[in-house]
């Protein structure tokens, strides 16, 4: 019986050399990142190649995805947030497709690695900080100063606001990573129980129970895969709203 964490191991497919102790290679993780981008390109570039007035199946799906992201950005970040649609679209689609590709049995889940989700969260937070300062200058730091509060209260409130801002990239990355990791481990463990019970003599009678549970967890994991991509996109929009309109 393989370990439940074996599925998260990064295996080089083609090694490209080393930088210090780190091996630079085309790995299974890289393969699924490329696959995710290929799926997105297939749907959104090939699917919309005709620019049909009356969309076909692929184009209707692509339009749904785009309209969903565009309306999320408009609702959360406001009308002037529309320039961030490409960023939110890329993040949402990349996370969604990586999560869903990870649901294929035997596939590697790119988003189950903290370094990947942390990098994606860093892209969001750096965009917020750089754009916020470029657009509003020092006024951007008004984000940390709630208006209409007694100055003495600010001594307590400003550090809280700073901590809450700093914890945003952490929660953004850990939420996605932890959900995907925990879900896949649970799935593997319960699926493993089925096999263990089948080969445990009389206990075979009990084997349908973890099987049913595995099926339920698979359904839950599909929900989590979509929901976490959505949560990532919505939080990105909310943080971008702060960059566009600092101050409470």
């Amino acid at each position: 019986m393989a370990s439940p964490i074996e599925q998260f191991e990064i295996k080089p497919i083609v090694s490209l050399g080393k930088i210090g102790a780190s091996e630079i290679a085309f790995t299974n993780s890289a393969l699924f990142m490329v696959a995710a981008v290929a799926v997105i390109a297939l749907l959104f570039v090939y699917g919309t190649r005709n620019r049909s007035l009356v969309p076909g199946r692929l184009q209707a799906l692509a339009e749904m995805g785009y309209e969903f992201v565009a309306s999320t950005v408009k609702d959360s970040a406001g009308h002037d947030g529309m320039k961030f649609v490409p960023l939110v679209f890329s993040l949402f689609m990349f996370v969604l497709v990586c999560n869903l590709l990870g649901m294929i049995p035997g596939a590697f889940t790119v988003t189950s690695h903290l370094v990947v989700t942390a990098a994606l969260a860093a892209i969001v937070i750096l965009t917020v900080i750089i754009y916020g300062i470029a657009k509003h200058g020092a006024h951007f730091f008004g984000l940390f100063v709630p208006s209409g509060v007694h100055p003495l209260m600010l001594i307590i409130l400003v550090p809280i606001e700073v901590i809450s801002f700093v914890s945003r990239p952490i929660s953004l990355s850990v939420r996605l990573f932890a959900n995907l990791l925990a879900g896949h481990i649970a799935l593997k463990i319960f699926a493993g129980f089925v096999a263990t019970l089948i080969f445990a003599g009389g206990w075979i009678i009990l084997s349908p129970l973890p099987l049913l549970l595995t099926i339920a967890i698979i359904a839950l994991e599909f929900l989590v895969a979509v929901l976490q991509a959505y949560v990532f996109a919505v939080l990105t929009c909310i943080y971008l709203h702060d960059a566009l309109h600092p101050g409470h």
């Binding site: 990064i10 780190s22 091996e23 085309f26 790995t27 490329v34 690695h113 990098a119 994606l120």
Partner: peptide
């Protein structure tokens, strides 16, 4: 030791 490789491919693909 896998971080550099992951970040490289993430940067390329993303």
């Amino acid at each position: 030791d896998t971080f550099a490789s992951q970040l490289l491919w993430l940067a390329i693909t993303f």
